[in-house]
Amino acid sequence: MMCDDARLLLHAYLDDELDAANSAAIAGHMRECPACTARYDAYATLHKALAQPGLYEKAPDALRQRWTTAAEAPATIVRPRQRRARMPLSVAAAAGFVAAMLLSGPAWLQLMRSGRVNHELVADVISGHVRSLQGQHLMDVVSTDQHTVKPWFEGRLDFAPRVKDLGDEGFPLIGGRLDAVDGRSVAALVYKRRLHVINLYQWPVEAGVPSPQTVVQEHGYTVIRWSDAGMQYVAVSDVSESDLRQFALAFQNDGSTSGAR
């Protein structure tokens, strides 16, 4: 064996990845070649040094916590069939809420229908939100002027999204883009809250059945959904839940008068 071959193969030999014939050939070569033996010893030392635990980067607790609690997330979706006997106050309150939903009929059906796609949709919008923060994906149209952003969507979507600047409320509009949620094209408006970004998705739904606002927290993001005048809205951000609620409220203000469609 030549030193050139040995230089390559001694690594596989070190890693115990060589077949018997090549192992024997390498061992034989090293018996006769001090240079390759020295080389091998150096890489064996390096191999040991790299096994030091100080080099291994363990996941930070915050990240781990996100994913340990995330597995419980589907269980936080409102369960309609709770028994009344011996339940804690919070569950009783939830049951009361559910009972109210039952009385209101169609709204309850709507909640059930949306409950089924909830998890999928939430994962979808969070994933979209994260993606939007990478590179140049955030905005297709960059403008703080709602009268620039709204016309931009014209011809790109089969509906006219509602565009509002909420700068006065502390959520300046910074632009918009096309995105996809649940397999359909949607409008995404981009707002800022200090250094955070809020994505607001909207698309038309069957009118006449207003669904109540739902708040879901997953993987450190807050997602708020509501519908209004035939439009489904989903806001997602890493701002605090109260901030995002405030955002949703600000957007809903004057909702019925500004021509949602």
Binding site: A71, E72, V117, A123, G128, S132, D179, A180, G183
Partner: peptide, 19 residues
């Protein structure tokens, strides 16, 4: 955002999460 639809969810989300 990927345009392909996510894997269809069954009624076994909890079992899936646990897995």
């Amino acid at each position: 955002m990927p345009t392909d639809p996510p894997a269809p969810m069954t009624g076994q989300d909890t079992a899936r999460s646990a897995r």
